[in-house]
Design a protein around this nucleic acid. Structure first.
Lengths: 246, 246
DNA sequence: CAGTGGTCTAGACCACCTC
DNA sequence: AGGTGGTCTAGACCACTGA
């Protein structure tokens, strides 16, 4: 893998970027499972035929993308949603008073349907393809905080049932990861303010017509492949959606 | 600046972190103004008595914090809100149809007042201190999209008047930077869904009671010093607030 | 103690921009 | 041609972890 043989004149691709690709591929095919340690930087350097510095730079990039986690003196680990650190990484809701409360997940329903045009587009499926729909309530402390309708591609989650949802003790992304081998990496969210319809008003125990925060989310796994489309209605009486602008 | 003399046993501080501090300080005191080029990495290495690699690592960090911008072959520049790249960096509103539209800023009012407990707390001022309050409308294309009430510490913006606001052609942060030497670096935002009161309904041309997105923002400059507290009401009929979760 | 990631250096060479 | 940032290397040493 010497630079001279792998870098055509017009599309220069640094060595460390190639190492990024190779490591990503290994993550993708499951060579290293979530939570386990990668080989040491020195070993990887030998494996890829580059210097340790180049491996470090590649890992730097993957750490900044939240695919890997470094722990000094221990090693470099594959990120996982089962970890306490990145447990509710995609949950932007927080109590107004700043006190931390337990978050609990209450599955309400789970059924199969054919994808409409909208859902199919967001999930990159053919219209009419099988999708699994999950309704659930999220409680923060005692308060019902979010009412979510979640659309999943049938091909990836075929074993998902109400029983499976009920047996899960942790977050949905954690369940997706350990039970279905689907790792959520990043997500795009769009927020709007809407009036509560009957169903969400009831679930969230607010008056029909109350203002709610509507969050529509597409979640991606490796290779920017969409694996979830979600509509969440957030009650912002006791909570808020927080965002850091950098 | 050898490591042995500058790193007490219990609080190890890497050299490059110290360089980060030194560069930040120079930015803070205005040694390098927004938009201009820093000395080359080699020059900085000499200046700080470290290797070029260490300077690079320091700059890497400042680039990732959006304080500096690298341009290969040209140099490293101080980030600025006047730049087309980072023009509306803190604006998360986008049209639903994805088409880009011009964003225009319509100042509505500007007056002085004494800070209430809330505002004082967010701005780190004494209650009763002088604050300047600005009301403005943001149009995206032709649509009124946001109605903002902005609280600024009187000490930093004493020259701010309606005339100044009207004469500004670009974003507010750009104005703060070039006219008042106050550089907005990052911000924390809290979102809620609320019902439109009379004033905001009128400004945004929606029915009173319509659901609106309320964004409360604290903006910080160097050293995590708060310089702005803002309440923005967003109409999400034609726009949405977008957020990327990594 | 040995193994891991983290820092720092010096030097070579490459890609990009401008004159 | 000469400057800038960007990549890559090899090697030394430091800080942290756990047996």
């Amino acid at each position: 893998m010497s630079p001279s043989t792998t870098t055509p004149a017009l599309a220069f691709r640094p060595l460390y970027k190639q190492v990024v690709s190779l490591i990503t591929r290994s993550l993708e095919i499951g060579e290293w499972k979530p939570g386990v340690a990668l080989p040491s930087e020195a070993e990887l350097a030998v494996r890829y035929g580059v210097s340790q510095g180049t491996v470090r730079k590649a890992i730097d990039e993957l750490v900044s993308e939240n695919l890997l986690i470094r722990r000094q003196g221990k090693g470099t680990f594959v990120a996982t949603h089962n970890d306490p650190d990145s447990f509710a990484r995609f949950l932007c809701l927080a109590p107004n008073d700043g006190k931390t409360r337990s978050v609990s997940n209450v599955p309400l329903a789970c059924w199969r349907a054919k994808a409409g045009a909208d859902v199919a587009r967001h999930l990159g499926l053919e219209p009419g393809a099988l999708v699994i729909i999950v309704r659930r309530l999220l409680r923060i402390g005692e308060d019902p905080a979010a009412f979510d309708e979640i659309y999943l591609p049938g091909g990836l989650f075929s074993e998902l049932t109400m029983d499976v949802l009920n047996s899960a003790e942790s977050s949905l992304y954690s369940l997706f990861e350990s039970r279905f081998g689907v790792r959520a990496i990043r997500a795009n969210e769009r927020l709007r303010a809407v009036s509560a319809d009957k169903v969400s008003a009831e679930a969230l125990q607010v008056a029909e017509g109350s203002p709610l925060l509507l969050a529509e989310r597409v979640t991606f796994t490796y290779g920017d492949k969409p694996v979830e489309w979600r509509r969440g209605f957030y009650s912002t009486r006791n909570c808020h959606y927080h965002n850091e602008l950098g």
